[in-house]
């Protein structure tokens, strides 16, 4: 694969007091790939996501997006540059309707945010875009439901919908299937595949479900205790003894 690098982490570290959550991580994500990041709990996956999306500043290291250093760029600017993010813990606008949740995200990318004496509902393009996204994530017929009244599975879809409506080039999925039952997962995988393949987007995926990771990702990075343990194709990772050790615990490592 010789695609260009879309986002790159260069020696990225993040320490919370004495705890080093992300330890000198370097990572290159190439365009038009689905790049999965896996690892046991506490490996630093979500912290890495927070650094890439700008939620927190790194202790050291740089983030390069489309060739520009964006380490100091605020999350809202990054959204405009083309980085979208979904959250592990559902993060929506609870007292607004599904349509409004997604419409707000669509509006964010437009140039009408400061028109204070126009009715928002007259900006048809954002509503159209929102309805398109509602179709993609499969929430048709739920437009007028308040987001907090949705069942969990649909909240996860809304979570993705809000991200997709911004039309980002890079999608950061933080455990999209968190808390979902196994029956709901294939549906969500299809949505992710469709969204990423459409317009040749790039995605980084943090996920615990191995079957899902193995089936949809092109590259897998394994993290453990804040460090990159291994990187490679799904096939390489599956047969990597180090990875098996990380997942099974150090006990086997010491015995060997």
């Amino acid at each position: 694969m010789a695609n260009e690098v879309l986002i790159e982490a260069v020696n990225l570290s993040k320490a919370f007091g004495g705890l080093i959550a992300v330890d000198n991580v370097s990572l290159q994500v190439r365009e038009h790939t689905i790049h999965a990041i896996i690892g046991p709990n506490g490996a630093g996956k979500t912290t890495l996501f927070n650094l890439l999306s700008g939620v927190m500043p790194p202790t050291s290291g740089r983030v390069i997006f489309k060739g520009n250093d964006i380490t100091q760029v605020s999350p809202q600017r990054r959204a405009h540059l083309g980085i979208g993010r979904s959250f592990q813990i559902t993060n929506i606008f609870p007292n607004l309707t599904v349509l409004e949740n997604i419409r707000l995200a669509a509006q964010a990318m437009g140039k009408d945010n400061f028109k204070m004496l126009h009715l928002a509902d007259n900006f048809r393009q954002y509503i159209d875009r929102a309805e398109e996204v509602i179709g993609v994530v499969g929430l048709e017929g739920r437009e007028w439901v308040l987001a907090r009244n949705l069942p969990h599975g649909e909240k996860r879809k809304l979570e993705l919908g809000i991200m997709i409506a911004c039309s980002p080039d890079l999608l950061l999925f933080d455990e999209p299937t968190a808390g979902m039952s196994s029956e709901q997962v294939p549906d969500l995988i299809n949505i992710i595949k469709r969204v990423v393949e459409h317009r040749n987007r790039t995605a980084i995926l943090v996920e615990h479900r191995m079957d899902m990771v193995m089936s949809i990702s092109n590259v897998i990075t394994v993290m453990n205790q804040g460090r990159v343990l291994a990187e490679g194709s799904p096939h390489e990772i599956a047969n990597n003894p180090q990875v098996q050790t990380a997942y099974l615990g150090d006990l086997y490592g010491e015995l060997a």
Binding site: V55, P75, Q76, R77, H80, G84, N91, A108, I162, M163
Partner: peptide
């Protein structure tokens, strides 16, 4: 927080 992530300050 979500507002920030979709590009509003």
């Amino acid at each position: 927080d979500r507002m920030r992530m979709i590009g509003y300050n």
